[in-house]
Structure formats: C-alpha cells, structure tokens
Amino acid sequence: MNCLGNLLWIIFGGLITGLSWLVLGCLWCITIIGIPIGLQCFKFASLSFMPFGKEVVYGGGMGSFIINVIWLLLSGIPMVIEYVVLGALFCVTIIGIPFGLQCFKLAKLSLMPFGSTIRN
C-alpha cells in the first residue's frame, strides 16, 4: 500500500515538493557555510518524494534550534506555505485526505528540519 501511495504522491504533488527541497539544497550549497543545511535539504527531498511509510522523529539541542531559526527566516516559511496550501487542496476531497496529511507532516518538518531524523 505504501508503494501505491508513494506512486500516486509523486504524480499528484510529490514531484513539485521534492524539487523544491532539491532547489533549496542547491542554493544553500553555494556557500561553504550553507553546505550542512543543503545536505539536510537533500535528505528531506528523498522523504518528500516518497513520504508514505516513513516517520519523522524530532530531537536535537541548542545547535539545532539556532539553525532551525535561521532556516525558518530564510527558507522555511515559503516551504511551509507550499505544504499547507497543497494539504488544504488535497483535504477538500475524501480521496485526497491521506495526501493532505502527508503535506501537513512535511509542513511540520519544514518548520524544524534540523535535529530530526527519518525512520522507515
């Protein structure tokens, strides 16, 4: 079922959101200081392409909090808006509710991506 959900996800919006993470990762990797943030973006791009069957575990310390604040100010807000709008559009229909819930999961991740890990 996860495979079918991921396939439909890529068709109906996962490709756009995954490419958003990839573009942000490339932009952050332009500077040497931004490379760790860009690598984290690449990790979450893979989650954004195939989110079904995966869980995000949040954690981290003060260093993660500081990087999350910088992330939120520079790149996080547009990502959150993208996921919330897509999630609301998906939740209009009953069939789209699972996709909308995945969008909201990824919106939360867009707020606090650093210090979090992905579990299968």
Rank of each mutant, 00 (worst) to 15 (best):
F52V: 05
L27D: 08
G13Q: 14
G5A: 12
G63W: 06
M50L: 13
I16R: 15
I30Q: 10
I95T: 03
L89C: 15
F114T: 05
C41M: 14
K43R: 15
L27A: 11
L27Y: 03
K105H: 09
S46A: 14
L15G: 09
G25A: 11
L22N: 03
L106M: 15
G14T: 07
I81Q: 05
I97A: 05
F99A: 14
I70N: 02
F42E: 05
V84T: 11
A107N: 04
T93C: 12
T31C: 06
N120C: 01
P113V: 04
F104I: 07
G76W: 06
V85W: 07
L101H: 03
L106S: 13
L106P: 08
F44I: 01
R119K: 10
V85N: 06
F52G: 03
G38Q: 11
L22P: 03
L73Q: 01
L47F: 12
I33P: 07
L74Q: 04
L101F: 13
L101E: 05
I35Q: 07
L101G: 05
T93D: 02
S116R: 01
L27V: 13
N68Q: 04
L8P: 00
A88E: 03
T17W: 09
C26R: 13
G14L: 08
F52K: 01
I94E: 02
A88I: 14
G53L: 01
T31K: 09
G61T: 05
I37K: 07
L27E: 07
M62S: 13
R119D: 00
V56L: 01
I32V: 15
L111F: 15
L4Q: 04
A88M: 10
I33N: 04
G53K: 00
G34D: 09
K108W: 08
R119H: 00
T117W: 00
I32Q: 10
S20Q: 07
T117C: 01
G61H: 08
I30W: 13
I35T: 09
G61S: 06
G59K: 02
C3R: 13
V85M: 10
A45N: 09
M79G: 07
V84W: 05
L15I: 04
E82A: 12
S64W: 05
C26P: 00
S46N: 10
L72I: 08
N120S: 04
P78R: 09
G13L: 14
V80D: 06
